[in-house]
Amino acid sequence: MEVRTIKVFTTVDNINLHTQVVDMSMTYGQQFGPTYLDGADVTKIKPHNSHEGKTFYVLPNDDTLRVEAFEYYHTTDPSFLGRYMSALNHTKKWKYPQVNGLTSIKWADNNCYLATALLTLQQIELKFNPPALQDAYYRARAGEAANFCALILAYCNKTVGELGDVRETMSYLFQHANLDSCKRVLNVVCKTCGQQQTTLKGVEAVMYMGTLSYEQFKKGVQIPCTCGKQATKYLVQQESPFVMMSAPPAQYELKHGTFTCASEYTGNYQCGHYKHITSKETLYCIDGALLTKSSEYKGPITDVFYKENSYTTTIK
């Protein structure tokens, strides 16, 4: 009895394709271990004539594949690729409408935090270190965002349907971005203890939790000093293409032309909904596939993004 075979390709990165001759009487799992086709788990399936010449994702289970996976995804987590594939199996079914010149995501599976993050990423200057993220990001900007969303979920250790947080998501993504040249110098002034300067680099240099107003941050924000008295913390120097200011959701007025974009969060910790506000020729609110415009805006804002380049204080 002759062994019926077909020729397929296996890959971990969709760049390096490895030619395989597979036995049609055995499952993919018996031949390769966990195997995925377009995100779908085909591990328990036997090869079919229609699979001839198709590319299958496999887990990096030998040295060659491990090197290829690390170079593309910059992670050695053995569960990463499987999590990416199972997320992709959902995100490829989502709709990605162009809204006001940006790629958004039609609401499904509690994905409003991903839509808000995706919209924000198209408006701030950011370059990702893992080629996987950078490639998928370019495709997302062009309207094909399924891979990018699935990668975000995998890097953030999230599953489809789980509630997510924009600030946490951005923080994970910033860790995989090139923020080497970003720098922030802060000064804390206390009447009792004097003053202390701190220099922050990388992710810490672009994120701040405690106030939404970048102007206020430049002037000074009140913080408790270690001595128990009130101290003032203010920005001395900022070198970065953008800054992200966050605070627990509270009524906040966004003035046209003073910011790049913002995240609105309605609801409580267990259950809520994100919308995205962007400042173009007027203010726009993007909620999944829905767009509304207004000249002014007041609502429960939790993150505001500002364009920056270089700032030095005039406070002496």
Score class of each variant (00 low, 15 high):
residue 4 R to Y: 11
residue 4 R to F: 11
residue 7 K to F: 13
residue 7 K to C: 08
residue 8 V to T: 08
residue 11 T to L: 06
residue 13 D to E: 06
residue 15 I to E: 10
residue 17 L to E: 12
residue 18 H to Q: 10
residue 20 Q to H: 14
residue 21 V to G: 10
residue 21 V to E: 14
residue 22 V to D: 05
residue 22 V to I: 09
residue 24 M to F: 09
residue 27 T to W: 15
residue 29 G to H: 11
residue 29 G to K: 09
residue 30 Q to R: 10
residue 31 Q to W: 14
residue 31 Q to N: 14
residue 31 Q to G: 08
residue 31 Q to F: 15
residue 33 G to Q: 05
residue 34 P to S: 12
residue 36 Y to M: 06
residue 38 D to G: 12
residue 39 G to C: 12
residue 41 D to E: 07
residue 43 T to L: 07
residue 43 T to Y: 10
residue 45 I to E: 12
residue 46 K to W: 14
residue 46 K to L: 12
residue 48 H to F: 12
residue 54 K to Q: 14
residue 56 F to D: 05
residue 57 Y to N: 12
residue 59 L to G: 10
residue 60 P to F: 06
residue 61 N to I: 07
residue 63 D to K: 09
residue 64 T to R: 13
residue 65 L to A: 12
residue 67 V to A: 13
residue 67 V to Y: 07
residue 67 V to N: 14
residue 68 E to C: 09
residue 69 A to W: 08
residue 69 A to T: 13
residue 70 F to A: 15
residue 72 Y to F: 09
residue 72 Y to K: 10
residue 73 Y to R: 02
residue 73 Y to Q: 04
residue 75 T to M: 14
residue 76 T to A: 15
residue 78 P to V: 15
residue 81 L to Q: 09
residue 83 R to I: 05
residue 86 S to P: 05
residue 88 L to P: 04
residue 92 K to S: 10
residue 93 K to S: 13
residue 94 W to Y: 04
residue 97 P to Y: 05
residue 97 P to I: 14
residue 99 V to C: 10
residue 99 V to D: 04
residue 100 N to Y: 10
residue 101 G to T: 06
residue 102 L to V: 05
residue 102 L to E: 03
residue 105 I to Y: 04
residue 106 K to V: 12
residue 106 K to D: 07
residue 107 W to G: 03
residue 108 A to G: 06
residue 109 D to S: 10
residue 109 D to N: 08
residue 112 C to M: 04
residue 112 C to E: 02
residue 113 Y to H: 06
residue 113 Y to C: 04
residue 117 A to Q: 02
residue 118 L to F: 11
residue 118 L to C: 04
residue 119 L to C: 06
residue 119 L to V: 05
residue 121 L to S: 06
residue 123 Q to H: 06
residue 124 I to H: 02
residue 124 I to A: 02
residue 125 E to W: 01
residue 126 L to F: 11
residue 128 F to Q: 02
residue 129 N to H: 12
residue 129 N to K: 08
residue 132 A to E: 03
residue 134 Q to F: 07
residue 134 Q to G: 07
residue 134 Q to Y: 07
residue 136 A to M: 08
residue 136 A to L: 04
residue 137 Y to L: 12
residue 143 G to V: 04
residue 143 G to M: 04
residue 143 G to F: 01
residue 145 A to C: 12
residue 147 N to Q: 13
residue 147 N to I: 10
residue 148 F to S: 02
residue 150 A to G: 06
residue 150 A to Y: 03
residue 151 L to R: 02
residue 151 L to V: 04
residue 154 A to H: 04
residue 155 Y to A: 01
residue 157 N to M: 08
residue 160 V to D: 03
residue 160 V to Q: 01
residue 160 V to I: 09
residue 161 G to K: 05
residue 162 E to A: 08
residue 163 L to H: 07
residue 165 D to E: 08
residue 165 D to M: 05
residue 168 E to K: 07
residue 170 M to Q: 01
residue 172 Y to M: 08
residue 174 F to E: 02
residue 174 F to L: 12
residue 176 H to K: 09
residue 176 H to R: 12
residue 176 H to A: 05
residue 178 N to D: 13
residue 179 L to W: 06
residue 180 D to R: 09
residue 181 S to A: 10
residue 181 S to C: 15
residue 182 C to L: 01
residue 184 R to G: 10
residue 187 N to P: 01
residue 189 V to A: 11
residue 189 V to G: 06
residue 189 V to N: 08
residue 190 C to F: 01
residue 190 C to G: 00
residue 191 K to M: 11
residue 191 K to R: 15
residue 191 K to A: 12
residue 193 C to M: 02
residue 195 Q to R: 12
residue 197 Q to I: 09
residue 197 Q to P: 07
residue 201 K to T: 13
residue 203 V to E: 07
residue 204 E to I: 02
residue 205 A to I: 00
residue 206 V to M: 02
residue 207 M to N: 03
residue 208 Y to E: 10
residue 209 M to C: 10
residue 210 G to I: 00
residue 211 T to I: 14
residue 211 T to H: 07
residue 212 L to T: 06
residue 212 L to F: 03
residue 214 Y to M: 08
residue 216 Q to I: 07
residue 217 F to Q: 03
residue 218 K to Y: 04
residue 219 K to C: 10
residue 220 G to F: 01
residue 220 G to V: 01
residue 221 V to F: 14
residue 222 Q to V: 11
residue 223 I to A: 12
residue 224 P to K: 10
residue 224 P to G: 10
residue 225 C to I: 00
residue 227 C to G: 01
residue 227 C to T: 01
residue 228 G to D: 01
residue 230 Q to T: 11
residue 233 K to G: 15
residue 235 L to G: 00
residue 236 V to N: 04
residue 236 V to P: 00
residue 236 V to Y: 09
residue 237 Q to V: 13
residue 238 Q to N: 01
residue 241 P to E: 11
residue 242 F to H: 00
residue 243 V to L: 07
residue 243 V to T: 03
residue 244 M to Q: 01
residue 245 M to F: 15
residue 249 P to C: 01
residue 250 A to E: 09
residue 251 Q to H: 09
residue 252 Y to K: 05
residue 253 E to M: 11
residue 254 L to F: 00
residue 254 L to Q: 03
residue 254 L to M: 03
residue 255 K to M: 09
residue 255 K to A: 10
residue 255 K to T: 10
residue 256 H to I: 13
residue 259 F to M: 00
residue 261 C to N: 00
residue 261 C to P: 00
residue 262 A to C: 02
residue 262 A to Y: 00
residue 262 A to I: 00
residue 263 S to V: 07
residue 269 Y to L: 13
residue 269 Y to I: 08
residue 270 Q to K: 14
residue 271 C to Y: 09
residue 272 G to E: 00
residue 272 G to H: 00
residue 272 G to Q: 02
residue 273 H to N: 03
residue 274 Y to L: 02
residue 276 H to P: 04
residue 279 S to W: 03
residue 279 S to P: 03
residue 279 S to M: 06
residue 281 E to P: 02
residue 281 E to R: 03
residue 282 T to Q: 14
residue 285 C to F: 07
residue 285 C to E: 08
residue 286 I to F: 07
residue 286 I to A: 01
residue 287 D to A: 00
residue 287 D to T: 00
residue 287 D to M: 02
residue 288 G to H: 01
residue 288 G to V: 02
residue 289 A to T: 08
residue 290 L to N: 14
residue 291 L to Q: 11
residue 292 T to C: 08
residue 294 S to A: 13
residue 295 S to C: 08
residue 295 S to A: 14
residue 298 K to I: 15
residue 299 G to I: 00
residue 299 G to R: 05
residue 300 P to D: 15
residue 300 P to W: 10
residue 302 T to M: 00
residue 302 T to E: 00
residue 302 T to N: 00
residue 303 D to K: 00
residue 303 D to I: 00
residue 308 E to R: 06
residue 309 N to H: 05
residue 309 N to G: 12
residue 310 S to W: 14
residue 311 Y to S: 08
residue 311 Y to I: 12
residue 312 T to K: 14
residue 312 T to Q: 15
residue 314 T to H: 09
residue 315 I to F: 08
